[in-house]
């Protein structure tokens, strides 16, 4: 891979290093590796639970193998298609919007000259991140409730319109949920992009300006291409989570309202509600396994594509 002649010296040196059993870099990576083994890889062995019917008297290891039976419940419901569709569509929307809005806001923040204004904006848009999702659910309820909600009592009534029972009309909720998701995550999202944007060498802009480019062109031709790597990284990682959903957003915020299931029921909420009664760890493990496998396949495909187009941006 290193074909640059100016690197020949280091090549020899790193060749020498290869001979040693542990290089300094290996040592530096070690804490992280050890942690991942402890935290992720050892428990990963427990994925076999998805294929067992757990009997605590026998213990986890001696329980019976039941093949794919624990996976059936994911597809048995008359709502199975709805659940999968909801999870997928919301995540696609989130991936696209997170990227576009995050970059846009990061760019806007970069344009602000006034230091005080910049500080204020950054603090303000980060606020929603700090509030736990259950509280967000209560606040949303405070806005949207039928009897006591702000919107029904102060806005709709003032306009002379009838009260709307938001918690029984599924059509509104994709908008509500997407809005709330963006609202909550834009703070941090934009900061990630912002810290990449400010790392772009300022002299590039200056020379572009001398060449006659206006600000819009500077942004589209210089900034955006240079933050492409991080955008691709984030998008790729989001693909791996394509079948997961933010439980708080889809369960708490709609206040667990039955009529809204058509647009708020996702895999995670379905599994949670199902297992509230059954509490079968084999089944919950199967659900997690299913979500992981799909994400895994998707990433393999997408990363493969990215690797063909711009190899240095692929995840591995």
């Amino acid at each position: 891979m290193n074909t640059d002649p100016s690197k020949s010296i280091s090549e020899k040196e790193s060749y020498k290093r290869k001979k040693r059993f542990f290089t300094a870099l290996d040592l530096m990576a070690l804490p992280g590796i050890i942690y991942l083994i402890i935290n992720n890889y050892i428990p990963m062995g427990g994925l076999f639970i998805a294929f067992k019917k757990i009997d605590f008297a026998k213990g986890i290891f001696a329980s019976d193998w039941v093949g794919f039976q624990n996976f059936k419940f994911l597809f048995r419901s008359s709502d199975a298609a709805v659940i999968l569709r909801n999870t997928l569509l919301y995540n696609l929307a989130f991936i696209v919007l997170n990227c576009v809005c995050g970059i846009a806001v990061g760019l806007f923040l970069n344009e602000i000259r006034n230091k005080l204004a910049k500080k204020f904006y950054q603090t303000a848009i980060l606020l929603p991140q700090l509030i736990s999702i259950i509280i967000v659910a209560y606040i949303t309820y405070g806005f949207l409730a039928s009897e006591t909600g702000f919107v029904n009592n102060h806005i709709l009534k003032a306009m002379g319109k009838a009260a709307v029972n938001f918690y029984s009309k599924p059509a509104y909720w994709p908008f509500f949920l997407i809005f709330i998701h963006i609202w909550k995550t834009i703070g941090y999202n934009s900061i990630i992009y912002f810290s990449s944007i400010i790392s772009v060498d300022k002299s590039l802009y200056e020379s572009a300006e001398i060449d006659g480019a206006n600000r819009f062109q500077q942004i589209t031709k210089i900034t955006l291409p240079l933050i492409k790597p991080i955008a691709i990284t984030l998008t790729l990682m989001a693909c791996g989570r394509i079948f997961y959903s933010d439980f708080g957003l889809f369960y708490q915020v709609p206040m667990n309202s039955g009529p809204l299931y058509a647009t708020t029921n996702t895999i995670d909420t379905y599994v949670y509600r199902a297992l509230l009664q059954l509490n079968d760890i084999g089944m919950s493990s199967a659900a997690g396994f299913f979500q992981s496998i799909v994400g895994f396949c998707l990433i393999m495909i997408v990363n493969g594509i990215v690797r063909k187009i711009s190899p240095e941006n692929a995840l591995y």
Partner: peptide, 24 residues
């Protein structure tokens, strides 16, 4: 019938409260 139990629980959660409260 665990799969059916979870599936019917889902339907139950979806409709039961709304119907028994008479809001529809």
């Amino acid at each position: 019938v665990t799969a059916e139990v979870t599936a019917t629980t889902n339907v139950y959660n979806k409709y039961y409260k709304n119907i028994t409260v008479g809001a529809c």
